[in-house]
């Protein structure tokens, strides 16, 4: 059974007509598919079908271990949104867990952003990102029923696209309980920056920037 409804397909097709550059989705799953691996893959397939500008590569986390390592993917299901075509580029945009519920819109926004080639971040944030000389890793914990979460995820992914120093993961808190425990996540969105700095909620750019400066 299709996951995407016909009406949504139509909306997305129209949206994707604006795509100017090729986008690649990379999905890591497993032969013995994990919880939501099947749905994550199917969802990616249904999205990729909607535009010639979107290609999809699906890998097996176990069988294609080297590729997983190349992409620095350490858990599944994982989805990557990156520039496709002849000159592919991986920005460090990651979704761990199924991007369902409110997070489905994050995937779509990311596709549009990557194809557009512009993050839309403010001047101050861009200047900070451009001057970075150390890696920054953001993990944005979410649940699919959290309306405020995509905002936090998107900002993380904007940053990842802005700078090669930055990687940003969406982490679906319920699917990765060990991570939720490790980072004491009991409320979402919660952004963990470089393991040490935490931020609750979806904050505007200046607030996130202040936190980022603390971390790097």
């Amino acid at each position: 059974m299709a996951l995407l409804q016909e009406a949504d397909r139509k909306v997305l097709k129209e949206k994707f007509a604006e795509l100017k550059n090729p986008v690649k989705m990379v999905v890591f799953t497993q032969e013995m598919e994990c919880q939501y691996c099947k749905e994550t893959r199917q969802l990616a397939e249904e999205v990729a079908e909607l535009s010639d500008m979107i290609t999809l590569e699906v890998y097996d986390f176990v069988k294609h271990q080297e590729i997983a390592e190349e992409y620095n993917v350490d858990k599944i299901p994982a989805t990557i949104i990156m520039t496709g075509g002849d000159d592919p580029k991986d920005y460090g945009i990651r979704f761990y867990g199924i991007p369902s519920g409110y997070e489905f819109s994050s995937i779509i926004e990311d596709i549009m952003m990557v194809a557009g080639g512009e993050t839309g971040l403010g001047a101050e944030m861009k200047a900070w990102a451009a001057a970075l000389d150390k890696p920054v890793h953001l993990q944005v914990f979410v649940t699919p029923t959290c309306p405020y979460c995509p905002r936090a995820v998107l900002m993380g992914h904007q940053l990842a696209m802005e700078s090669d120093m930055i990687t940003a993961d969406m982490v679906e808190a319920i699917e990765f309980p060990h991570l939720s425990n490790k980072y004491a996540v009991q409320g979402v969105p919660r952004t963990v920056i470089n393991e040490t700095i935490h931020m609750e909620g979806a904050a505007p750019e200046p607030m996130l920037l202040a936190k980022l400066k603390q971390a790097a």
Binding site: D8, S100, Y102, S106, P150
Partner: peptide, 11 residues
Amino acid sequence: NLNMDLGMGLS
């Protein structure tokens, strides 16, 4: 969520 809510953000 999969069945119902995917379209949610899309509207």
